[in-house]
Deep mutational scan, measured.
Amino acid sequence: MTEYKLVVVGAGGVGKSALTIQLIQNHFVDEYDPTIEDSYRKQVVIDGETCLLDILDTAGQEEYSAMRDQYMRTGEGFLCVFAINNTKSFEDIHHYREQIKRVKDSEDVPMVLVGNKCDLPSRTVDTKQAQDLARSYGIPFIETSAKTRQGVDDAFYTLVREIRKHKEKMSKDGKKKKKKSKTKCVIM
C-alpha cells in the first residue's frame, strides 16, 4: 500500500485542523484551538488504489514558523489553505509557496490551493482571484467548507493525484537520464 505524506499549511484560523478532522473523523470542530502540530493517518481508496494518507496539520501562528522547514522537508505534497473571508490569509499563500519551493529546492512541488469556509456569506476573496492565482502557479484550486464537508475529500484526493503525477514524471525523467548515460565512448 502506497503511503502519501501530505502537509496542510496556511495562516492561523483558516480551518486547516477543521478540514483535516472532517476528512479523518467526519465531524466539524467549530471551536478554535490553535494547533502546534498534529499528525493523522487514514486509509482510503483513490482511483481504485488503496493508500495510506499521513497528514500533518501544522501551526499557522507566526511564533511556530521555525518548525516549518522541518515538516516541509518531509512532506510530499501540500494543501495551501486560505479562508475566503480573510484576504490576508490569501496573500500569505505566496509566502508559504515560496518557502516550500526553497526548502524542497524545487520549482515543481505537488500543491493544491484550497479556499476554505465557502459556506460563509462574508467572502472577501473572489473565486476568480483564487483561480487566477492557482493557474499562475500551475496547481489545482478547490473551494471547501469544513463545516458542510463540501470539497473536503476532493481537496485531499486531488493532492494525492498531483503527487502521483509528480512521481510518474520524475521516474520518466530518471529513465531518460539513465538511457543517456548508457551511451559509451570508444577510443581507438
Rank of each mutant, 00 (worst) to 15 (best):
D154T: 09
T158G: 03
T158S: 05
V160Y: 04
S145F: 05
V152T: 06
E162I: 02
E162P: 00
L159H: 00
A155T: 01
F156Q: 00
R149E: 11
V125E: 07
T158N: 06
K182W: 01
E162G: 03
R135T: 05
Y157H: 09
Q131A: 13
A134S: 10
K178G: 13
F156M: 07
G151K: 13
M170C: 13
K178N: 13
R135I: 14
M188G: 15
R135G: 08
H166L: 07
D126V: 05
Y137W: 15
S145W: 05
Q131C: 09
K167C: 02
Y137I: 07
V160N: 01
D153A: 13
D153W: 06
K178H: 14
H166P: 01
M188L: 02
R164S: 13
A146Y: 00
V125L: 11
K165S: 03
Q150S: 15
A130T: 07
E162C: 03
I139N: 02
D132I: 04
A130L: 14
D154I: 05
E162H: 03
A155C: 11
V160A: 03
F156R: 00
I142D: 01
L159I: 09
H166Y: 09
R135Q: 12
V160I: 11
T158R: 05
M188W: 06
K169A: 03
R135F: 04
K167A: 06
D154R: 08
Q129A: 15
K128P: 09
D153M: 13
H166G: 11
F156V: 07
D126S: 08
D153C: 10
Q131N: 07
Q131M: 12
H166K: 02
K172E: 15
V152K: 11
K128R: 09
M170E: 15
R164F: 04
D126P: 03
R164H: 10
A130Q: 08
R164Q: 07
F156G: 00
T183Y: 01
V152M: 06
T127C: 12
L133M: 12
K169V: 11
Q150R: 08
A130E: 08
K178I: 07
K165E: 05
M188P: 15
V160H: 02
A155P: 06
A155I: 13
K176W: 11
G138W: 00
K165Y: 03
A155W: 00
S181V: 07
Q129N: 13
K176G: 15
Y137E: 14
L159V: 03
Y137V: 12
Y157T: 14
D126R: 04
R149G: 09
S136I: 07
K178W: 05
Q131P: 05
K169M: 11
E162A: 05
R164N: 11
S181W: 01
T183G: 11
K165A: 05
L159T: 01
Q131Y: 04
Q131D: 08
K178E: 14
L133H: 05
G151R: 04
I142H: 09
V160L: 07
F156S: 00
S136K: 13
T158H: 10
L159M: 02
Q131L: 07
K167D: 12
H166N: 10
D154F: 05
F156C: 03
M188T: 13
K165C: 02
K167E: 05
D132E: 14
F156H: 00
L133A: 11
K128M: 11
G151E: 11
A130Y: 15
L159G: 00
R135H: 06
D153H: 10
V160E: 01
A130D: 04
E162F: 01
H166Q: 09
Y137C: 14
K175C: 12
K178P: 10
K167I: 01
D154G: 06
A130P: 04
D126I: 05
Q131F: 08
Q129L: 10
A155F: 01
Y137F: 11
R135N: 13
M188R: 15
K178M: 08
F141D: 00
